[in-house]
Design a protein around this nucleic acid. Structure first.
Lengths: 215, 215
DNA sequence: CAGCCATTCATACTTTAGTCTGAAATTCAT
DNA sequence: ATGAATTTCAGACTAAAGTATGAATGGCTG
């Protein structure tokens, strides 16, 4: 059972998150905080496994709250939930100790995936955040691959897959064996944390990993 | 050599079509029109074999332009290119004398096929347009769901499918048997003219047949 | 140079997906 | 009420998809 604490100043957001998380058997919402200070206090008293933290909150923002919580309780994971306009704060958020960064309009299923992913010790960043980090990394010249570790060839395969092609067709297009395609695809599934090609294709289009030809 | 005239008000579309058609040895783009009036004028002066005509254009729309051109030069074939939202105009377009009707996001290869098909005297309709015409021909009364001949239940199944669910999961979600899901899915494939669930999912998202929940 | 990673391919296997055929119950409009 | 369409389900397939495991090659790097 994953014990979740929600920290967001918007009532509707909390209700929405609660609603979706309640449908998950292995997830339990153990508390709600309306600002950063409450989040810190509840994190200490409740000791949740993970906190869904809003970036912008009154009293204390998500970054500060994250820093304080991670300082005292490093085992508590924090998934930063934010709106699109806050994307400049990706780096600070990650530096503050957040294990993930996702947009608020994330799909329920995906949110759950992110939570589980984090509980498995993996980072989970929204694709657009990747670009930010990517640029940031070039400047600071350190930090490993955080997200989307797809190799060039895997990206080729995914691109073909996202055109709706079968393994045989992909193999033909890329001049390799169907066996090879299967290998790549299995690896893609693992890296993207999806179960089948349909999910992979949907993931790719949703996260803009594709290049539409579009006449 | 097939002499082609392109009529579309969007520069990018014209460039895109030009780009793909240039790779075809037996196809020559002999002119470009930015609106219906230009299309009519160029059709007369250039006398192309076929016109790729956008439905929605300033000055004069594709329907009107098609009528005028076919009235004067019935030997000039016209392939209507349109976006999904214009699907209500399939019938008028065909009645105006268009030899074919295709979506703008058609694959290059498929577009070329359509062109050759028309030059051989065959009609070439987008699959969904065909159904529309069938229905329209018989009922000829009203046309609520002109396109998307998917039944409500099939739409349910497609919606679940587009979430990346398996047949078993869909069956569970909709409280029916996996057999039933399979039946629906097979029918969906037929109606959408796709070969598998991945293509169906991609089709659904591309054509906005999905409903984003959004936390 | 040794080692890691990407890429390739293979065998063998299990599990879904998808098709075909057939059919019963229900709704709905003519 | 008859016919048509929808929805439901089944059996019996065939064809793909996906997993697990292992292995050879070549490139790049410390």
């Amino acid at each position: 059972m994953i014990r979740v604490l929600i920290a967001d100043d918007h009532h509707v957001v909390r209700r929405g998150l609660l609603f979706f998380l309640k449908t998950q058997k292995d997830i339990e919402v153990v508390g709600e905080a309306k600002n950063g200070l409450e989040a810190v206090a509840l994190a200490e008293s409740i000791q949740p496994d993970i906190i869904l933290m809003d970036l912008v909150m009154p009293e204390m923002d998500g970054i500060q709250a994250t820093k304080r919580i991670k300082a005292k309780f490093p085992q508590i994971e924090i998934l930063m939930l934010t709106s699109f306009s806050d994307r400049d704060h990706v780096v600070p958020a990650m530096e503050a100790g957040a294990a993930g960064y996702q947009l608020k309009d994330i799909e329920p299923d995906e949110l759950v995936l992110s939570i589980r992913r984090i509980m498995r010790g993996e980072n989970t960043l929204h694709p657009e955040a990747t670009t930010t980090l990517e640029m940031d990394r070039q400047e600071s010249k350190n930090a490993p691959h955080v997200l989307n570790p797809l190799t060039p060839r895997e990206q080729d395969v995914l691109a073909e897959l996202t055109k709706g092609k079968s393994n045989r067709e992909i193999a033909s297009s890329l001049f390799v064996t169907e066996k090879t395609v299967k290998t790549h695809i299995s690896n893609i599934f693992t890296k993207l944390h999806v179960q089948d090609r349909t999910q992979a294709a949907l993931y790719a289009v949703k996260h803009g990993l594709t290049e539409g030809s579009g006449v």
